[in-house]
């Protein structure tokens, strides 16, 4: 949207983001600021899935695999190395490589959307089982035990790059996480305007046509998936720093389900909606966790069911329709198409 030559769609979120980044520390006490930091981390995680699912059309049901890998990679690396610059990068690199490897097998094998969902889910499940059951002293990577179901307590936090004596305090962590959220959001917005981004969206719309035009859809899907995996890993790394603690629940089904629910509730095919979904539902998780009445699984299961059956487009698109009173979103079927009976006789 342009008004008098000004890109409102960039200015408004930009100004809001900066206002939150610098404004919240003035108004919030430390405890609330810590909560907001967690929401920002979860919003990054939501964006990573919003990108690969909502725009790339790749159904990743086991997104916690990459979140958990980022978390554990950081924890194990920082316990071994001490200074946090390399561990921070390793935490992004490990899930990125994992996503690339799994993505290679999935996309170059040309398995259908639904199979991709099941494969990723299985990946997360097995990682969870592995990490959960490696509790003995025999399971360690360098100096770091894997810790099994107990996880790893007392994970050292981030320090100013290359300055191990200067570690980040909770206030710094807030600026880092919120700042990274803004960077990731605008980074993805930018990416979606490039040729790569547009082809990725075109693949979501019609993979065959993309190939008839001459783009390698496998490569584009692999790249999309890898970027999403890396961003989820970044969120995992920040998450360990936030709590100074990592446990196998980062790999859990519930964690994967949560991300799916954030994106679904916010709106598949938008970036802003999933961020809102992440914040609202993370808040809800904290609220539910502090009482004994309703089980969290029960609540989130109900939310997922209700949204799939009744509000499949999510809240953002519906709100936008209400506000503008016209069909501007979604510009496509909400979910990825059912699998084409692909390439008979080819392989």
């Amino acid at each position: 949207m342009k008004i008098a030559g000004i890109r409102l769609d960039l200015i408004v979120p930009g100004v809001c983001g900066l206002a939150l980044l610098f404004g919240l520390p003035i108004f919030l006490d430390l405890f609330s600021l810590l909560q907001v930091t967690l929401y920002a981390i979860m919003a990054i995680l939501a964006l990573s899935l919003a990108f690969i699912w909502g725009y790339g059309g790749i159904l990743c049901l086991g997104h916690s695999a990459f979140f958990g890998l980022g978390a554990y990679a950081y924890a194990i690396a920082v316990i071994n190395i001490g200074e946090s610059t390399a561990p921070f990068l390793i935490a992004i690199l490990v899930p990125t490589l994992a996503a690339a490897a799994v993505g290679y097998f999935m996309f170059y094998g040309r398995i259908s959307d639904v199979y991709v969902g099941v494969m990723t889910l299985t990946l997360a499940l097995i990682l969870f089982n592995v990490v959960n059951s490696t509790s003995g002293a025999q399971y360690h990577i360098g100096k770091a035990p894997i810790g099994g179901y107990n996880g790893l307590p007392n994970v050292p936090g981030l320090n100013v790059p290359f300055d191990p004596d200067n570690s980040l305090d909770p206030g710094d962590m807030y600026y880092l996480c919120m700042g990274l959220l803004i960077v990731v959001y605008f980074g993805l917005r930018w990416l979606l305007t490039t040729r790569f981004g547009r082809v990725a969206v075109a693949i979501r719309e019609n993979e065959k046509r993309v190939e008839f035009i001459g783009y390698d859809s496998r490569l584009h899907k692999l790249a999309t998936f890898t970027i999403g995996g890396g961003l989820a890993g970044l969120a995992g790394c920040l998450f360990v720093n936030w709590g100074a603690y990592v446990s196998p629940t980062t790999f859990s089904m519930m964690q994967s389900a949560q991300v799916i629910i954030w994106v679904l509730v916010g709106g598949v095919g938008t970036l802003f909606g999933p961020m809102i979904g992440a914040v609202a539902l993370s808040w809800l998780t904290v609220e539910v966790g502090s009482q004994q009445l309703i089980d969290a699984n029960l609540l989130f299961g109900a939310i997922l069911l209700v949204f799939v059956l009744l509000v499949p487009r999510g809240i953002m698109p519906v709100l936008i329709d209400r506000v503008w009173g016209r069909i501007s979103l979604p510009r496509r079927p909400v979910f990825t198409a059912p699998p084409v009976a692909a390439r008979e006789g080819k392989r």
């Binding site: 159904l59 049901l61 639904v114 969902g117 099941v118 089904m253 519930m254 389900a257 799916i260 679904l264 309703i294 089980d295 969290a296 699984n297 029960l298 609540l299 989130f300 299961g301 109900a302 939310i303 997922l304 069911l305 209700v306 799939v308 059956l309």
Partner: peptide
């Protein structure tokens, strides 16, 4: 898939 996942969580709950 998504609906049955919701169901799965609901049953666990």
């Amino acid at each position: 898939m998504l609906a049955s996942w919701g169901l799965s969580l609901l049953i666990v709950g």
